[in-house]
Amino acid sequence: MAIVFDRPKSLLDVTLSYCPGCTHGIVHRLVAEVMDELDIQGKTVGVAPVGCAVMAYDFFACDMIQAPHGRAPAVATGIKRAKPDNIVFTYQGDGDLAAIGTAETIHAATRGENITIIFINNAIYGMTGGQMAPTTLPNQVTQTTPYGRDVDSAGYPIRVCELLSTLDGVALAQRVSVDSVKNVNLAKKAIKKGFQNQIDKKGFSIIEVVSTCPTNWGLTPVEAVKWLQENMLPYYPLGVYKDGEKGDRLK
């Protein structure tokens, strides 16, 4: 009998550490499928963040390194500059990428560093038990915004793709989600483009995946997807914010 659905070779045969219903699993699978389809596993080095995906080094079949909190784009820069023929990607959450690692993210982007960033935005710190993230929505309740995020005190959420799209080093800045079959397919296309850009030396690519955190949102997986659609997507519209190659606007 023909096998029509199998584990991608670039995803190891281990149990993922993520909570039930968390969308990390889907995104891991998409990244692994893309590695398989582009036949790049053998030359890929992945950079794991600090956060829920810290143990991503146990899940992907390529070489992996674990970076300090927020520094994944700097570590990736070091690897890529040392070995330009390798394919280097980081896999980071919102606290890692848009709070402690803001400088590393922005500067890797503006240098046009030829790397691919997978950015999971679920509006909360998952690993540490549900604190406010830089992308937590106004009035959203978290452990450290128990009365809802008060923008007068805690400020406003950061729209990362919009921010980075202004930088000339960026090739691709695209926001996707995995809340429906259609969007899963779109997300995979975007991730594939992000890696293809690197192969084609086009510059910095970031794919922001608007994601759920049922555990820390206090919702069932199905309710979490619904909450994402009703609350996250209006603030973080899906779409392409930059698609081209670094420096193209200056030509």
């Binding site: 700097a74 070091g78 890529k80 500059r81 040392a82 070995k83 400088a103 590393e104």
Partner: peptide
């Protein structure tokens, strides 16, 4: 962009 980033770039390059 900072000493922090520079040292982490060294971590990446040395690891490679």
């Amino acid at each position: 962009e900072s000493e922090i980033a520079a040292a982490n770039m060294v971590l990446g390059a040395s690891a490679a």
